[in-house]
Nucleic acid binder design. Sequence first.
DNA 1: ACAGCTTTGTGAAACTGTGCACAAGCGTCG
DNA 2: CGACGCTTGTGCACAGTTTCACAAAGCTGT
Lengths: 215, 215
Amino acid sequence: MYLKLLSDQFELGITNISSEELAELGGVNAAKVRKDLSYLGSYGTRGVGYDVEFLVFQIKRELGLTHEWHVVVVGAGHLGNALAGYGGFGERGFPVGGVVDVDPAKIGTVVGGVRVRHLDELAAVVHSRKISIGVIATPAVAAQHAADSLVSAGITSILNFAPTIINTPHGISVRKVDLAVELQILSYHEQRRANVREATKLKAVPGNGRRGASA
Amino acid sequence: MYLKLLSDQFELGITNISSEELAELGGVNAAKVRKDLSYLGSYGTRGVGYDVEFLVFQIKRELGLTHEWHVVVVGAGHLGNALAGYGGFGERGFPVGGVVDVDPAKIGTVVGGVRVRHLDELAAVVHSRKISIGVIATPAVAAQHAADSLVSAGITSILNFAPTIINTPHGISVRKVDLAVELQILSYHEQRRANVREATKLKAVPGNGRRGASA
DNA sequence: ACAGCTTTGTGAAACTGTGCACAAGCGTCG
DNA sequence: CGACGCTTGTGCACAGTTTCACAAAGCTGT
């Protein structure tokens, strides 16, 4: 988040920023900003603030963003297509270095500027581009097989968009993004709002409510 | 997560489950499972466990998933297309009730079974289907305008895929999903692995390393 | 009816994360 | 060159979360 905010500020020509301003932009507490940034080292100047460009560099260095990381996408369906064609990945330092699928109808088609190859060729794709990050964009049932294939091919980090939990050997980093879960969380808030409206309408049984929650 | 795991187990024909088993499936502590579930009420049976189907129903009820929530997607580009065509939304109780864009070339085209309409018609779309959840799938620069339009149209929950922080009035629930951020987190782990390999290779300066982290 | 086994529900303890408050340090101005 | 205003870096306290540990309770077999 800090990287995003600071990069944006730098683009706007801001060269220096205080923890207070950064906290404002990120919607968090200024003390937390300073504590978080102190993890990188003492790069601020008392009485002045932080040098935006320098901080961007330090964060990138810590996150390993000083060079590009090619990623390989498994699954060339709707989601795989969108991810490969998205463009936002390349811009942020994660160009799509390969797309694989098992469907013969999809193999050979071009997605996001890359020709789709068969899952069996995954190891070759991975090694030719020294890829270490794999993205799973398959249906849930195929996700585990995709994960196993990625691990066999030598991938050590996986971003899983399939709505299922995948098992991997120790030492593999896995992140899961489940779009439906995000909507469920919003649904919960909506439900709560509806309940509150109901309770207000009935005007009765105070203290019978549920634990509070904010937006 | 519990909802997903329990639904899966139910599909497999499992009718009863202990906190221990559920913890195993979710990769968490059994005591935590029991505490989390106790929030819903005392629905377990001591010596036996939890009735899977009953628990699924209770979780759905609490999350407000006893009925469908139509969503409106703002932005019919790559991402909007993928989201609307994804199918996973409808399956999980969030059918796409409308898609809007500002690009005349896109208006009128059909995305995910829905005809794309102009952003100006957003309020009409929202009201006709009683939609309360909006999804922002626009470029970053258009995200704030999309959010403002959604709020004006009466939307109270927003799922933001644009890589920017949007400002909304108090009382609006906002969730942000930034695909690049997920990759950055994986990059961080990769970087750390690379650092560890480097340190091992050099074999020197012990105690000069960084704080530990797991996969 | 009761012993023995299993599993829940939950206080208490341990741990983790957040925010406050202030000393220390930097730049500026008189 | 010293006083003053501003901002960082961090010790400490508070708040929230996770785990432990165990009493309570249900089921089974005798």
